[in-house]
């Protein structure tokens, strides 16, 4: 990951692997005008795991709305989708 990536939140997607997860999540983010700065995915013990660093600053929607849209998608696709401000990871993982 490059050091100059601009992002203010982290989206994580956990669930059983299936066709269309990335398309589904990125589609919703695009509709909300959220830029994806970095994306990575792995399959851990049959569990699909995707981490995206995103920038919500240009989105016209507030954080609650974004969170709600992702949650709805998660329910539809049977995935756990979270969006969290990056500060929580800074707090816990950096001194």
């Amino acid at each position: 990951m490059s050091q100059s990536v601009k992002y203010n939140a982290v989206v994580t997607v956990l669930g059983k692997d299936r066709v269309g997860i990335i398309a589904g999540v990125t589609g919703v983010l695009a509709n909300l005008n959220i830029n994806i700065s970095d994306i990575s995915q792995t399959i851990l013990k049959d569990m699909f795991t995707m981490i995206m660093l995103v920038d919500t600053m240009n989105s016209t929607y507030d954080f609650d709305k974004i969170r709600e849209e992702l949650k709805l998608l998660g329910e539809k696709m049977n995935l756990e989708i979270r969006i969290q401000h990056k500060e929580i990871f800074n707090a816990m993982q950096r001194i």
Partner: peptide, 11 residues
């Protein structure tokens, strides 16, 4: 910037 394992640990 975070490593994936760090983000997953927090989650």
């Amino acid at each position: 910037m975070f490593e994936n394992f760090e983000i997953l640990e927090t989650i």
